[in-house]
Structures are given as C-alpha cells and as structure tokens.
C-alpha cells in the first residue's frame, strides 16, 4: 500500500469545485457562442434572435431551432473583409513569432551561459516586465514612437533623418509592440531547456573539431527544440487573436481578426457575426492549441 494511493480520494474531492467552475465558466460559454453564431441580429434585448425560451412550449422551441442558420459563416467566408482579417492575423502572427524567436534565442542563450548565481537574477529581470501592465507597456511605446516622441528627437539630433518619421499607425510600430510584449514568453521556455542542457555535449563537439556554428546547429539547437516549440506556441496562439496592440499601434486600413470581432461586437452591435468570427478563430487555432496542451501536460504532469 503506497501513500500515493491513499492520497487519491481526497484529491478527487479537491478537484470538484474547480472542475465545476471551469465547466460552467469556460466550457458552457462556448455553447452559447456557437448558438448565437447561428442566430441573426435583432434590434432587441438581447440583440439577437431566436431566443430560446424553455417556458414558451415545445412549438416555440421548434420554431426557434428552425430559425438557426449558418448565414453568418457564409458571410465570413464570402466577405473579403473577414477573409483578409484572418489572413492578416495569421501572417502577422507568423512573422512576429519568427522575429521573437530570432531576438529571444540569443538572449535566452546568453542567460543560460551566465554563472549559476547570475542566471536567477537574469530570470527575474526578464520576468519583471511581464508583470507590469500590458497596456502600460504599449502606452510606453506610443510615448516613444509618436510624431514628436523620443525616437524621432534622437534620430533628428543625430541627423539620421531630416524630418520626423511616421512610426505610429504603421506595421513597424505594431511589430515592435508585439515583440516587446511577448518577448518574455519566448525567452523563458527557451532558457528553461537551454539551462538544463549538459555543457559537456557542446564541449565534446568542439573538442572533436567542430567550429562554433556547427556546434550550435548540430548540438545546441536540436536539443533546445522542446523550448522552441513551447515558446513559439505560447506566442503564436495569442498573437493571432491580438486586439490591443494592433488597435493602438497599427494603422486602421487593414485589421486583424481580433479587431474585426471587437468592432462587430462593440461598434456594430452584431453579436451573431462576432460569435461566428470567434468560432472560426477557434477552429483556426485548434491544432496549435492541442499541440500546446500536449506540451504543457507533458511538462507538468509527467515529472520534470
């Protein structure tokens, strides 16, 4: 009789409250999103129809079921606005994730090579900005990037440009904002795998005559792939649905899907189309989401 066994029953009991909470507030809501994505907008409260009223009797329920349709999804597929928004979201997320990997890897690598004592300090230094507000960090960049902001002042003072450059409301600003906000999410999983790596492996390779770049490509990088995978997914998935950063930093002539959804919901008050957009977004992200879950589970539940 091992202790573990005896422990199982209270643990099962402990799981009840959070389990019920997650089913009620995470799983069930998707049912409502699905249902409303099949409804039509109405000038009413709530602003969609049909409304299922269990007290109205069987016939009314049947009529309500009959009124559901996939028109919203047809609209999403046929209207260029939405198609472009999905394509743009994926493109931006791919490009930004690639940038993040390119910028984050050398930083994580540097961290992993610090003496042990300094590694802890460096880790805290990377985590701290993640704790300061997301919105504030974007706002800080608006300060810097605006027409007469610090960046333009410096560029003008150094005579690198002759007149202020337009930074705000451009894709450049948006990419800066995304990389800035998500960098800790890329660095930390990379660092976690790089720090665990045996330095002996790299040393053996270089002792056997491999030049540094070959050591990196043949030993270091392949061994860090789990970290790369975690970092990439941790950044890619939320970036696809990002709203705040493109809204505040990018121009308004091409929208990402998060912005389109927000507009449909808050400005056009079209809840059904917003819901349909959310469902499609979820479907697009399903594969990366499942991959991420598997990675997370393996890391946390099968011992580290």
């Amino acid at each position: 009789m091992s202790g573990r066994r005896i422990f199982a029953r209270p643990a099962r009991f402990a799981a009840m409250a959070p389990y019920v909470w997650m089913v009620l507030f995470f799983l069930v809501p998707f049912g409502f999103v699905l249902k409303i994505s099949l409804s039509q907008t109405a000038i009413a409260q709530p602003p969609y129809e049909p409304v299922f009223d269990l007290t109205a009797g069987w016939e009314a329920l049947k009529a309500a079921f009959a009124a559901l349709s996939i028109d919203n999804f047809r609209l999403l597929v046929s209207d260029d606005l939405y198609v472009f928004a999905y394509v743009r979201s994926l493109t931006v997320a791919f490009a930004a994730t690639a940038l993040l990997l390119l910028i984050g890897y050398p930083i994580a690598y540097g961290m992993a090579r610090l003496p042990k004592r300094w590694q802890a300090v460096a880790m805290v230094l990377v985590i701290v900005p993640f704790w300061t507000s997301f919105l504030i960090r974007i706002y800080a960049w608006i300060n810097i990037l605006q027409h007469d902001g610090l960046l333009n002042q410096i560029l003008l003072a150094l005579h690198l440009v002759s007149q202020p450059v337009v930074w705000l409301s451009t894709d450049t600003a948006m990419y800066i904002g995304i990389v800035y906000s998500y960098l800790p999410f890329m660095i930390l999983p990379l660092y976690a795998t790089l720090a665990k790596m045996e330095p002996v492996l790299e040393e053996a390779a270089s002792d056997l005559g491999a030049p540094p770049w070959q050591v990196f490509w043949l030993i270091t990088f392949p061994l860090s792939l789990p970290g790369v995978g975690a970092g990439v997914l941790l950044c890619f998935i939320p970036i696809v649905g990002e709203f705040v950063i493109p809204d505040l930093l990018a121009g308004s002539n091409s929208l990402m899907i998060g912005q389109t959804l927000w507009l449909e919901f808050f400005t056009n008050k079209d809840w059904p189309v917003a819901s349909a957009a959310a469902i499609v977004l979820l479907v697009v992200l399903l594969v990366p989401l499942l991959l991420y879950e598997r990675l997370q589970k393996r890391q946390l539940e099968q011992g580290r």
Binding site: F26, F243, L289
Partner: peptide, 8 residues
C-alpha cells in the same frame, strides 16, 4: 485559457 485569445 493560458493561451486562448482574450477576445474569445
């Protein structure tokens, strides 16, 4: 929820 886009 850790990675789910907040709009959803």
């Amino acid at each position: 929820p850790l990675v789910m886009p907040e709009v959803i």
